[in-house]
Design a protein around this nucleic acid. Structure first.
Lengths: 145, 145
DNA sequence: CTCTTTTAGATGCATCTGCATGTATATATA
DNA sequence: TATATATACATGCAGATGCATCTAAAAGAG
């Protein structure tokens, strides 16, 4: 199994790129078909939903989502323009702002999940046993660390 | 391990997205630092290099790379504009063209690989044993099928 | 306090992407 | 052969992304 040590790494890499592309394309297509916002919005909505009343500041969100600053800035702009979130000024820091979900945002998050959740399970759950999914999650986790 | 069957799938999904983002960002950054073309170019260059003298037609490449047609069309346009590939008209099919790497393209492919290969191994190889890489590759392969 | 540096976030500009559609050739059908 | 349909590839346009830079407020140095 280790004749060519580099080979297995290359294969893992290639499959990571392909699996990501295939699976993501499928899921995004389902969201679009349901006339829902793209996937990236979900992450923001979900983090803010979890954060609750106090919300989060953009830079906190940025660290959670691993997005470049300018990317998040514009993503928030779009999400806000749809009335899903609200920006509140904060007294402690005049540079900053607090992001809080609006009712509409809470609602759309759920609506997205109603499509997103099943889509994930179709894309992943149908191809892997539960045990395999756990293994996959663990192996991928090592790449992140 | 199967208390909550959906949970493991969600975790695998989340980690797939994160691992892809983290690892890809790092690799792309290394290519950019070396003033080399972005990753997407490599796939094209590599397929054409493997295809050799006869090259490939865009629609063949498209199937191999799983790219949308318009995406590939423009990607080829950019790669061609740098003089890395040549489009040849073909007699059998007046609609089509044959894509063949130029010398410059062969050269740049190698140069990219000189950075890309080590980058992959840093991103993946250093976090996984060879056995783990094989397992990861197999699990990911199931998602593609 | 004044001056410098750091941090939070926005934005102009060029490039890239996605979608829809266009053009041209090839194939199928009548 | 005339006509419809399908396939190969390109492209106009709107929106998204990446990069560098900007503004403003905070924190630190003297």
């Amino acid at each position: 199994m280790d004749k060519n040590p580099g080979k297995s790494v290359d294969q893992a890499w290639t499959n990571l790129l392909r699996a990501h592309r295939v699976v993501l394309t499928g899921v995004e297509a389902k969201l679009k078909a349901a006339r829902l916002p793209p996937l990236a919005w979900y992450d923001v909505l979900w983090e803010l939903d979890k954060a609750g009343k106090d919300g989060l500041r953009p830079f906190e969100l940025q660290k959670k989502l691993l997005l470049p600053q300018y990317h998040l800035s514009r993503l928030l702009e779009r999400i806000e323009s749809k009335g899903y979130l609200e920006r509140q000024a904060i007294k402690e820091d005049g540079r900053g702002q607090r992001l809080v979900l609006c009712k509409k945002g809470v609602k759309i998050r759920q609506e997205i999940w109603d499509v997103y959740g099943p889509a994930i399970h179709a894309a992943v759950g149908e191809h892997l046993s539960s045990t395999e999914a756990v293994k996959l999650a663990k192996l991928l986790a090592k790449l992140i660390a």
